[in-house]
Amino acid sequence: MKTVIDAHNVSKTFNPDTIPILAVNNVHLHLERGEFTALVGPSGSGKTTLLNLLGGLDKPDKGSILINGKDITQLSPNALIDFRLHHIGFVFQSFNLIPVLTARENVELIMQLQHKKKEEIDERVLNLFREIGMEDKMDTRPAQLSGGQQQRVAVARALASKPQFVLADEPTANLDSKSATNLLDIMAKLNQEENITFIFSTHDARVIERARRVITLVDGQIHSDTARVPTDLPHEGEKPRN
């Protein structure tokens, strides 16, 4: 298995000069290609902060984060933006599609930022919309799409750049049950068929049930890290990873 993320001794404190909040405390994390991992824990446990650190959206105060062997904590802000563009996909809780662009344009934007050729963009975008089952909604603006449809477009956008892994922050939090199941089906399929690595922060039991690895955070520290067989696959029981 190829290592995708290798985080060592990562800590992050907010408001260090006033009322310090230790959001992530000395976290060690190792993720390999093709993992389908849920990051769980109560509110304020540091899930989103850890995802932001792993995605290069925030810098840790301490520790190193190696993505494919490259320490992203050492990159300049501009280099980090470029690194995110080419290596990391993001899915946000509130979809965060660009409201003035159509679904297709939202997905195309990432590939245009990568300076891909038009033919390549057209082919990839069409394939992604087929994967998410929304070929007929490609030219629709986000406001005309349901929450579930918007989140599916967000997944397509996250995958457009062919990233090393996708970070999804509470992707099903704003979705109804049917939309959430549908979205998880799509992501599980992409994970299994294309070996794309997914890491979710979530409270959602439906997501946790589908994950093959569950990392529990409490007070910014990894409380447990469990490998498991998802409920949609033959159940073989759970075993602790460390």
């Binding site: 802000p77 501009n78 470029d82 995110r84 563009l85 080419h86 993001f90 965060n96 934007l109 930022l113």
Partner: peptide, 16 residues
């Protein structure tokens, strides 16, 4: 603000 932050997160550089 959120949208611009999201664009930066996705990889739109500062120049753009």
């Amino acid at each position: 603000t959120r949208e611009i932050g999201m664009l930066t997160a996705l990889g739109m550089n500062r120049k753009k």
